[in-house]
Design a protein around this nucleic acid. Sequence first.
DNA 1: TTACATGCAAATACTTTGCATATAA
DNA 2: TTATATGCAAAGTATTTGCATGTAA
Lengths: 137, 137
Amino acid sequence: MEQRLKKAGLKATRQRIAMMRVLAEQKGHAITAEELYEKTHSQTGVDRSTVYRSLTSLEERGLVERMDRRDGSACYCLAGQEHSHLLMCVRCQKTVPIAGCPFHQMEESIGASTGFVMLGHTLELTGICPECAAKHC
Amino acid sequence: MEQRLKKAGLKATRQRIAMMRVLAEQKGHAITAEELYEKTHSQTGVDRSTVYRSLTSLEERGLVERMDRRDGSACYCLAGQEHSHLLMCVRCQKTVPIAGCPFHQMEESIGASTGFVMLGHTLELTGICPECAAKHC
DNA sequence: TTACATGCAAATACTTTGCATATAA
DNA sequence: TTATATGCAAAGTATTTGCATGTAA
Protein backbone atom coordinates (compact mmCIF):
# COMPACT_ATOMS: atom_id res chain seq x y z
CA MET A 1 0.00 0.00 0.00
CA GLU A 2 2.82 2.37 0.90
CA GLN A 3 4.47 1.74 -2.45
CA ARG A 4 1.26 2.30 -4.37
CA LEU A 5 0.69 5.63 -2.68
CA LYS A 6 4.25 6.87 -3.21
CA LYS A 7 4.30 5.71 -6.80
CA ALA A 8 1.15 7.77 -7.36
CA GLY A 9 2.87 10.86 -5.96
CA LEU A 10 1.01 10.87 -2.63
CA LYS A 11 2.44 10.80 0.87
CA ALA A 12 2.01 7.44 2.55
CA THR A 13 0.39 8.55 5.79
CA ARG A 14 -0.94 6.26 8.51
CA GLN A 15 -4.46 7.35 7.61
CA ARG A 16 -4.18 6.71 3.89
CA ILE A 17 -2.55 3.34 4.36
CA ALA A 18 -5.43 2.32 6.62
CA MET A 19 -7.96 3.51 4.05
CA MET A 20 -6.31 1.57 1.24
CA ARG A 21 -6.18 -1.56 3.41
CA VAL A 22 -9.86 -1.34 4.27
CA LEU A 23 -10.81 -0.78 0.65
CA ALA A 24 -8.70 -3.78 -0.39
CA GLU A 25 -10.49 -5.95 2.17
CA GLN A 26 -13.84 -5.17 0.54
CA LYS A 27 -12.87 -7.27 -2.50
CA GLY A 28 -14.51 -4.95 -5.01
CA HIS A 29 -17.59 -4.20 -2.92
CA ALA A 30 -17.80 -0.41 -2.85
CA ILE A 31 -18.32 1.35 0.51
CA THR A 32 -19.31 4.91 1.38
CA ALA A 33 -17.02 7.58 2.79
CA GLU A 34 -18.91 7.24 6.06
CA GLU A 35 -18.33 3.48 6.21
CA LEU A 36 -14.68 3.98 5.40
CA TYR A 37 -14.50 6.59 8.16
CA GLU A 38 -16.06 4.20 10.67
CA LYS A 39 -13.67 1.41 9.76
CA THR A 40 -10.54 3.58 9.94
CA HIS A 41 -11.35 6.06 12.69
CA SER A 42 -11.08 3.47 15.47
CA GLN A 43 -7.55 2.47 14.46
CA THR A 44 -6.15 5.84 13.42
CA GLY A 45 -8.38 8.56 14.88
CA VAL A 46 -8.73 9.97 11.36
CA ASP A 47 -11.19 12.79 10.80
CA ARG A 48 -14.11 12.69 8.36
CA SER A 49 -12.76 15.61 6.39
CA THR A 50 -9.48 13.76 5.91
CA VAL A 51 -11.33 10.73 4.59
CA TYR A 52 -13.16 12.90 2.06
CA ARG A 53 -10.03 14.78 1.03
CA SER A 54 -7.99 11.61 0.70
CA LEU A 55 -10.64 9.87 -1.36
CA THR A 56 -10.54 12.78 -3.79
CA SER A 57 -6.76 12.53 -4.09
CA LEU A 58 -6.85 8.76 -4.43
CA GLU A 59 -9.43 9.01 -7.17
CA GLU A 60 -7.51 11.70 -9.04
CA ARG A 61 -4.43 9.48 -9.03
CA GLY A 62 -6.41 6.51 -10.26
CA LEU A 63 -6.08 4.41 -7.10
CA VAL A 64 -9.78 4.23 -6.28
CA GLU A 65 -12.99 4.38 -8.27
CA ARG A 66 -16.05 6.29 -7.25
CA MET A 67 -19.70 5.60 -7.90
CA ASP A 68 -22.43 8.15 -7.17
CA ARG A 69 -25.56 6.88 -5.54
CA ARG A 70 -29.14 8.03 -5.61
CA ASP A 71 -29.23 9.15 -1.99
CA GLY A 72 -26.64 11.81 -2.73
CA SER A 73 -23.73 9.86 -1.28
CA ALA A 74 -20.97 8.14 -3.21
CA CYS A 75 -19.16 4.87 -2.70
CA TYR A 76 -15.60 3.82 -3.44
CA CYS A 77 -13.62 0.74 -4.28
CA LEU A 78 -10.02 -0.01 -5.17
CA ALA A 79 -9.43 0.65 -8.87
CA GLY A 80 -9.10 -2.21 -11.32
CA GLN A 81 -11.06 -4.78 -9.37
CA GLU A 82 -13.68 -7.02 -10.85
CA HIS A 83 -17.12 -5.47 -10.57
CA SER A 84 -20.69 -5.63 -11.78
CA HIS A 85 -23.55 -3.16 -12.01
CA LEU A 86 -26.94 -2.77 -10.39
CA LEU A 87 -30.50 -2.61 -11.60
CA MET A 88 -32.65 -0.66 -9.14
CA CYS A 89 -36.41 -0.42 -8.72
CA VAL A 90 -37.41 3.26 -8.58
CA ARG A 91 -40.37 2.42 -6.34
CA CYS A 92 -38.99 0.14 -3.63
CA GLN A 93 -35.25 0.76 -4.15
CA LYS A 94 -34.57 -2.96 -4.34
CA THR A 95 -31.43 -3.70 -6.36
CA VAL A 96 -30.52 -6.69 -8.48
CA PRO A 97 -26.98 -7.22 -9.77
CA ILE A 98 -26.42 -7.48 -13.51
CA ALA A 99 -23.94 -10.14 -14.49
CA GLY A 100 -20.79 -8.91 -16.18
CA CYS A 101 -19.77 -5.46 -17.28
CA PRO A 102 -20.03 -4.52 -20.93
CA PHE A 103 -17.50 -1.70 -20.68
CA HIS A 104 -14.13 -3.32 -20.40
CA GLN A 105 -13.56 -3.34 -24.13
CA MET A 106 -15.54 -0.18 -24.82
CA GLU A 107 -13.34 1.89 -22.52
CA GLU A 108 -10.32 1.17 -24.63
CA SER A 109 -11.81 2.59 -27.79
CA ILE A 110 -13.28 5.61 -25.99
CA GLY A 111 -9.90 6.37 -24.43
CA ALA A 112 -8.27 6.17 -27.83
CA SER A 113 -10.74 8.55 -29.46
CA THR A 114 -10.76 11.15 -26.68
CA GLY A 115 -7.19 11.01 -25.42
CA PHE A 116 -8.43 10.45 -21.86
CA VAL A 117 -6.69 8.09 -19.46
CA MET A 118 -9.71 5.94 -18.61
CA LEU A 119 -10.22 5.34 -14.89
CA GLY A 120 -13.64 3.79 -14.57
CA HIS A 121 -17.33 4.24 -15.03
CA THR A 122 -20.60 4.41 -13.20
CA LEU A 123 -23.55 2.57 -14.58
CA GLU A 124 -26.90 2.21 -12.96
CA LEU A 125 -29.99 0.89 -14.65
CA THR A 126 -33.42 1.79 -13.37
CA GLY A 127 -36.78 0.15 -13.73
CA ILE A 128 -39.75 -1.17 -11.83
CA CYS A 129 -39.47 -4.61 -10.30
CA PRO A 130 -42.12 -7.28 -10.95
CA GLU A 131 -43.60 -6.95 -7.45
CA CYS A 132 -44.03 -3.18 -7.64
CA ALA A 133 -45.31 -3.34 -11.19
CA ALA A 134 -48.04 -5.71 -9.98
CA LYS A 135 -49.14 -3.39 -7.15
CA HIS A 136 -50.74 -0.37 -8.82
CA CYS A 137 -52.23 0.65 -12.19
CA MET B 1 -49.25 16.96 -20.81
CA GLU B 2 -52.48 16.69 -18.85
CA GLN B 3 -53.29 13.44 -20.61
CA ARG B 4 -49.89 11.96 -19.95
CA LEU B 5 -50.17 12.72 -16.25
CA LYS B 6 -53.67 11.30 -15.91
CA LYS B 7 -52.82 8.22 -17.90
CA ALA B 8 -49.95 7.60 -15.49
CA GLY B 9 -52.38 7.79 -12.55
CA LEU B 10 -51.23 11.21 -11.32
CA LYS B 11 -53.34 14.31 -10.77
CA ALA B 12 -52.81 16.93 -13.45
CA THR B 13 -52.05 19.93 -11.27
CA ARG B 14 -50.98 23.36 -12.53
CA GLN B 15 -47.55 22.78 -11.02
CA ARG B 16 -46.96 19.39 -12.61
CA ILE B 17 -48.14 20.53 -16.01
CA ALA B 18 -45.67 23.41 -15.85
CA MET B 19 -42.86 21.03 -14.88
CA MET B 20 -43.60 18.67 -17.74
CA ARG B 21 -43.71 21.60 -20.19
CA VAL B 22 -40.36 22.93 -19.05
CA LEU B 23 -38.78 19.49 -19.23
CA ALA B 24 -40.16 19.02 -22.74
CA GLU B 25 -38.64 22.34 -23.81
CA GLN B 26 -35.17 21.11 -22.83
CA LYS B 27 -35.17 18.67 -25.77
CA GLY B 28 -33.40 15.90 -23.90
CA HIS B 29 -30.96 18.14 -22.04
CA ALA B 30 -31.34 17.18 -18.39
CA ILE B 31 -31.78 19.93 -15.77
CA THR B 32 -31.53 19.92 -11.99
CA ALA B 33 -34.43 20.12 -9.55
CA GLU B 34 -33.22 23.62 -8.67
CA GLU B 35 -33.26 24.74 -12.31
CA LEU B 36 -36.70 23.25 -12.75
CA TYR B 37 -37.83 25.09 -9.64
CA GLU B 38 -36.49 28.40 -10.96
CA LYS B 39 -38.21 27.94 -14.31
CA THR B 40 -41.59 27.00 -12.81
CA HIS B 41 -41.74 29.04 -9.62
CA SER B 42 -42.21 32.36 -11.41
CA GLN B 43 -45.27 31.10 -13.30
CA THR B 44 -46.89 28.95 -10.66
CA GLY B 45 -45.43 29.91 -7.28
CA VAL B 46 -44.59 26.25 -6.76
CA ASP B 47 -42.49 25.31 -3.74
CA ARG B 48 -39.15 23.50 -3.89
CA SER B 49 -40.46 20.58 -1.87
CA THR B 50 -43.28 20.14 -4.37
CA VAL B 51 -40.78 20.03 -7.21
CA TYR B 52 -38.80 17.32 -5.44
CA ARG B 53 -41.89 15.33 -4.53
CA SER B 54 -43.33 15.59 -8.01
CA LEU B 55 -40.09 14.56 -9.68
CA THR B 56 -40.10 11.43 -7.54
CA SER B 57 -43.68 10.61 -8.59
CA LEU B 58 -42.96 11.37 -12.24
CA GLU B 59 -39.93 9.12 -12.18
CA GLU B 60 -41.81 6.29 -10.48
CA ARG B 61 -44.45 6.45 -13.17
CA GLY B 62 -41.84 6.42 -15.91
CA LEU B 63 -42.52 9.96 -17.19
CA VAL B 64 -39.08 11.36 -16.41
CA GLU B 65 -35.58 9.93 -16.15
CA ARG B 66 -33.11 10.85 -13.49
CA MET B 67 -29.34 10.98 -13.56
CA ASP B 68 -27.24 11.40 -10.44
CA ARG B 69 -24.33 13.79 -10.60
CA ARG B 70 -21.04 13.95 -8.77
CA ASP B 71 -21.87 17.07 -6.80
CA GLY B 72 -24.67 15.23 -5.01
CA SER B 73 -27.43 16.71 -7.09
CA ALA B 74 -29.45 14.93 -9.75
CA CYS B 75 -30.82 16.06 -13.08
CA TYR B 76 -33.95 15.08 -14.94
CA CYS B 77 -35.24 14.85 -18.47
CA LEU B 78 -38.43 13.63 -20.10
CA ALA B 79 -38.36 9.85 -20.53
CA GLY B 80 -37.75 8.26 -23.89
CA GLN B 81 -35.85 11.13 -25.47
CA GLU B 82 -32.65 10.70 -27.41
CA HIS B 83 -29.63 11.05 -25.18
CA SER B 84 -25.91 10.49 -24.92
CA HIS B 85 -23.45 10.01 -22.07
CA LEU B 86 -20.56 11.93 -20.61
CA LEU B 87 -16.89 11.28 -20.05
CA MET B 88 -15.59 13.41 -17.18
CA CYS B 89 -12.06 14.31 -16.08
CA VAL B 90 -11.70 13.59 -12.35
CA ARG B 91 -9.14 16.37 -12.00
CA CYS B 92 -10.65 19.37 -13.79
CA GLN B 93 -14.27 18.16 -14.10
CA LYS B 94 -14.33 18.90 -17.81
CA THR B 95 -16.84 16.70 -19.63
CA VAL B 96 -16.84 15.35 -23.16
CA PRO B 97 -19.93 13.74 -24.69
CA ILE B 98 -19.69 10.17 -25.95
CA ALA B 99 -21.49 9.58 -29.20
CA GLY B 100 -24.38 7.16 -29.09
CA CYS B 101 -25.71 5.05 -26.27
CA PRO B 102 -24.89 1.35 -26.17
CA PHE B 103 -27.80 0.46 -23.96
CA HIS B 104 -30.89 0.60 -26.10
CA GLN B 105 -30.67 -3.03 -27.12
CA MET B 106 -29.12 -4.21 -23.88
CA GLU B 107 -32.01 -2.94 -21.80
CA GLU B 108 -34.39 -5.22 -23.60
CA SER B 109 -32.52 -8.41 -22.72
CA ILE B 110 -31.92 -7.27 -19.13
CA GLY B 111 -35.62 -6.53 -18.72
CA ALA B 112 -36.47 -9.96 -20.03
CA SER B 113 -34.10 -11.77 -17.66
CA THR B 114 -35.04 -9.83 -14.52
CA GLY B 115 -38.73 -9.14 -15.06
CA PHE B 116 -38.18 -5.42 -14.50
CA VAL B 117 -39.99 -2.77 -16.50
CA MET B 118 -36.94 -0.91 -17.75
CA LEU B 119 -37.11 2.86 -17.33
CA GLY B 120 -33.63 4.13 -18.05
CA HIS B 121 -30.02 4.16 -17.00
CA THR B 122 -27.25 6.37 -15.74
CA LEU B 123 -23.83 6.01 -17.25
CA GLU B 124 -20.84 8.15 -16.51
CA LEU B 125 -17.32 7.36 -17.58
CA THR B 126 -14.38 8.84 -15.71
CA GLY B 127 -10.79 9.44 -16.67
CA ILE B 128 -8.09 12.05 -16.86
CA CYS B 129 -8.12 14.40 -19.81
CA PRO B 130 -5.00 14.89 -21.97
CA GLU B 131 -4.28 18.36 -20.50
CA CYS B 132 -4.44 17.21 -16.89
CA ALA B 133 -2.48 14.05 -17.64
CA ALA B 134 0.31 16.23 -19.02
CA LYS B 135 0.46 18.43 -15.91
CA HIS B 136 1.83 16.22 -13.13
CA CYS B 137 3.79 12.97 -12.69
C1' DT C 1 -66.17 14.16 -0.88
C1' DT C 2 -61.98 12.23 -0.41
C1' DA C 3 -57.60 10.72 -1.66
C1' DC C 4 -53.94 13.00 -3.39
C1' DA C 5 -51.06 17.24 -3.73
C1' DT C 6 -49.24 21.53 -2.05
C1' DG C 7 -46.92 25.32 0.79
C1' DC C 8 -44.35 26.46 4.60
C1' DA C 9 -40.87 25.81 7.92
C1' DA C 10 -37.75 23.06 10.02
C1' DA C 11 -34.73 19.24 9.88
C1' DT C 12 -31.41 15.94 7.83
C1' DA C 13 -27.50 14.08 5.31
C1' DC C 14 -23.44 14.36 2.81
C1' DT C 15 -19.67 17.00 1.82
C1' DT C 16 -16.53 21.10 1.73
C1' DT C 17 -13.66 24.76 3.62
C1' DG C 18 -10.53 27.86 6.59
C1' DC C 19 -6.98 27.74 9.41
C1' DA C 20 -3.49 26.33 12.64
C1' DT C 21 -0.68 22.33 13.48
C1' DA C 22 1.75 18.07 12.31
C1' DT C 23 4.44 14.99 9.48
C1' DA C 24 6.49 12.41 5.36
C1' DA C 25 10.07 12.92 2.17
C1' DT D 1 13.19 21.99 5.70
C1' DT D 2 9.20 22.37 3.17
C1' DA D 3 5.39 20.93 0.57
C1' DT D 4 1.78 18.12 1.71
C1' DA D 5 -1.58 16.26 4.87
C1' DT D 6 -4.30 16.42 9.05
C1' DG D 7 -7.74 17.71 12.87
C1' DC D 8 -11.15 20.62 14.39
C1' DA D 9 -15.02 23.48 13.93
C1' DA D 10 -18.08 25.75 11.12
C1' DA D 11 -20.50 26.35 6.92
C1' DG D 12 -22.69 24.96 2.55
C1' DT D 13 -25.81 22.53 -0.52
C1' DA D 14 -29.19 19.27 -2.01
C1' DT D 15 -32.92 17.04 -0.38
C1' DT D 16 -36.60 15.29 2.89
C1' DT D 17 -40.31 15.51 6.27
C1' DG D 18 -44.41 16.91 9.36
C1' DC D 19 -48.38 19.08 9.28
C1' DA D 20 -52.21 21.98 8.13
C1' DT D 21 -54.55 23.45 4.01
C1' DG D 22 -55.99 23.17 -0.80
C1' DT D 23 -57.79 20.96 -4.97
C1' DA D 24 -58.48 17.56 -8.93
C1' DA D 25 -61.32 13.78 -9.95
